[in-house]
């Protein structure tokens, strides 16, 4: 029981980290809180589904295509809408939230809900590891998450574009004097965030089915993780997703399923009370706190 719970808690944490990392990347770099994040997650899943079932595109092609499409859509969203609102927090939040709503509610309206709307797992087999029944898809999620996080770390530390990302994130004006185009970087950041949402959807959705309501859940999970970890900090996101992931699984198996939501809610409120910028939100601590 204990080992099984621990393994599932680990996987749950990795899922949380994978869902949150795109949101966190976009916010950390461009300062845009992309409230349409959950919509991108669901939209990419539906895109893959439609490509596969309506156009007969093979799975391994339709996934990268939908990831790419989401990135392009994210970039378009920044170019067409967010660019005009840059710096006005109120307007940014309302605009992204509005766009997310439009996407999710359109899917709900067209009734794309049900068990047939799901993606196939990459590898459909399961093993018994340490006495726990575990399917390969969950293992794959862990592998993908580790690879994505490593690639992101490599990208932001060792490529010139990634360094420009970090430069803009740390001090936009100074970065501008070094000739980094903040609009270009922000476009890319939103696009990367949307793309990461699509990556997360591609590996996580096969565990369940695609439903518009899931979009809100994903957004809320990403927000919760980011608030606890500290917005804009990748280490914080990982730490926070482990905290919530373990807390959720353990309350689930030892106290009761009802209490998982209460645990994460309590965690958010407690963290905000004790350390308002989150555990690792050092980078912009002064600007976020008053």
């Amino acid at each position: 029981m204990l080992i099984g719970t621990t393994i599932y808690a680990l996987i749950n944490s990795v899922i949380l980290a994978l869902t949150a990392i795109g949101f966190n990347l976009t916010f950390g770099i461009s300062g845009v809180a992309n409230f349409a994040y959950g919509a991108f997650y669901i939209l990419s899943a539906y895109t893959t589904w439609i490509l596969m079932n309506q156009f007969g595109v093979p799975y391994l092609i339709s996934v990268p295509v939908s990831i790419l499409l989401m990135a392009v859509l994210g970039a378009l969203m920044y170019r067409l809408v967010l660019k005009r609102l840059r710096g006005q927090v109120l307007a940014e939040v309302i605009a992204t939230f509005g766009m997310g709503l439009v996407i999710l509610e359109l899917f709900r309206y067209f009734g794309l809900v049900g068990f047939e709307y799901t993606l196939p797992p990459f590898i459909d087999s399961s093993h018994i590891i340490l006495g726990t029944y575990l399917d390969m898809q969950r293992l794959l999620i862990v592998i993908v998450a580790v690879v994505v996080i490593f690639l992101l770390w490599f990208f932001t530390h060792y490529t010139s574009l990634g360094l420009a990302f970090r430069g803009i994130a740390q001090d936009e004006r100074t970065a501008l004097t070094f000739g980094m185009d903040s609009d270009k970087i922000a476009t890319l950041a939103v696009a990367f965030g949307a793309g990461l949402a699509a990556v997360a959807a591609a590996v996580i959705i096969p565990l369940g089915s695609i439903a518009p309501g899931e979009g809100y859940d994903v957004l809320i999970k990403a927000l919760a993780v980011c608030i606890i970890g500290g917005l804009g900090s990748t280490g914080g996101v990982i730490a926070a997703s482990f905290l919530i992931g373990f807390a959720e699984r353990f309350t689930d198996s030892y106290i009761g399923t009802h209490w998982t939501m209460i645990v994460s809610l309590a965690a958010i409120l407690c963290v905000l009370l004790i350390k308002p910028s989150g555990f690792f939100g050092k980078q912009k601590e002064l600007e976020e706190r008053i």
Partner: peptide, 29 residues
Amino acid sequence: LPVLRLRGIYFSMVTLILPIMLVRIIEAT
């Protein structure tokens, strides 16, 4: 109250989360 110590989008985030979580809690308990 805990959110008031932060500025910017934190307030929006928490206000977005709270009603949905409360629904879950009412549903579950």
